[in-house]
Design a protein around this nucleic acid. Sequence first.
DNA 1: GATTTATGAATGAATGTTCATTCATCAATT
DNA 2: AATTGATGAATGAACATTCATTCATAAATC
Lengths: 217, 217
Amino acid sequence: MSKWKPVVRAKPREQRERQLINAALECISTLGLSDTTVQAVAAEAGMAVGSISQYFDNKSRLLTAVLRQLSEEFEHAWRQALADCDPDPARRLGAFVRCYFQPALCQRRKIAVWFAFWGEVKAQPHYQEVCARYDRLHDETLESLCAALIEAGGYRERRAREAAKLIASMCQGLWLELVTGRDRLKRTELTSLALDGLGALFPRHVPAFALETTVRG
Amino acid sequence: MSKWKPVVRAKPREQRERQLINAALECISTLGLSDTTVQAVAAEAGMAVGSISQYFDNKSRLLTAVLRQLSEEFEHAWRQALADCDPDPARRLGAFVRCYFQPALCQRRKIAVWFAFWGEVKAQPHYQEVCARYDRLHDETLESLCAALIEAGGYRERRAREAAKLIASMCQGLWLELVTGRDRLKRTELTSLALDGLGALFPRHVPAFALETTVRG
DNA sequence: GATTTATGAATGAATGTTCATTCATCAATT
DNA sequence: AATTGATGAATGAACATTCATTCATAAATC
């Protein structure tokens, strides 16, 4: 006859959504975006395939939810870092850059997922739309941090917009290293490299960049 | 009679292979790796689907052939650039960096394909294997260019290995900008940014970086 | 005429979506 | 307190579609 399924207790909606998002993230990381199927995600989450359309209308919406969670997590991280940082411009810029490489975010698992989405951005423009708001705020913030340091430090030769683009590109390029690189660089080595690069742009503030912010509350 | 295939026969084959590779590249760029089907590639190439297994055993091999062609094209570009460049270390480094942004390579179409593959590297390690040899040579060359400039220019504070990693990351990060960036930066703007970054690392050679090499033969 | 090359319909496996069914929970009623 | 009924969360088999691969046939070439 028909089999009985072990029905687990109903959990809050938000919790199950996150359960699916995390399962999807794991699948994308290990299988790639191409081979991430709803059945794989369901299995990873320990749920039924039907639950995916229950919480997200379809597969596509689940995937964009993954991207949105990554974006939100990153934004939260740098907001927090700046909130915890004293007002010295150089320290703030250093704290911002260090965010890219903090343990919670800078994992090969997660970075691989970022690049999985970026690898499809041109073909799936709606991924771009998901990121647009986060990107804009990120870019504007980084640019104003650069502007503040240029002003305070008297770096006449630098322009904030260009410096910001360079810094962001450098950090993302170092992320790529984590995914494609042959010599497995550690998180800490990537951090040093990034701060080296920052120091090259603003050489008179190398010591400030190197300092971890310790303020809290 | 002659069971031997004369040279005249080999040419159409290579030509058709390239036809399929280019069609696949176009598909990956516009559809993404996930939605690139053999039927789409065949249509783009104006051939039958069966021809794909004729020239490449299966879809997977066609895709890696695309990646290999990209890698070869890039390697050829920087080899040529260095061959055409005078022996001044700074000029050579500048020429190498400029390669990333030369018109034939730095097209949104092509860069999107690079990132499509990089986005699947963790899940499909054989993509990594395809690039490994090219990457190693690229990295070693860049590192030795940095070493030469550090030596010749007296940059005691820099180490070649770190500088090379930073430069490569920066260039690839700027490539990413071309795919994901909201403000469509032109090839020429990316070049300026890259040379700015290079100038920050080796400030006493900014003028040399800016110069196009004109030597030929 | 023989051999190689190209074609695309056919095939079966894989995948996203749907939906009838099951059953835990809880309010209403006795 | 005990019973009943309504609700909707969870499930996964069934379905329609898409896709990579195959191969019988046609076309081209020697």
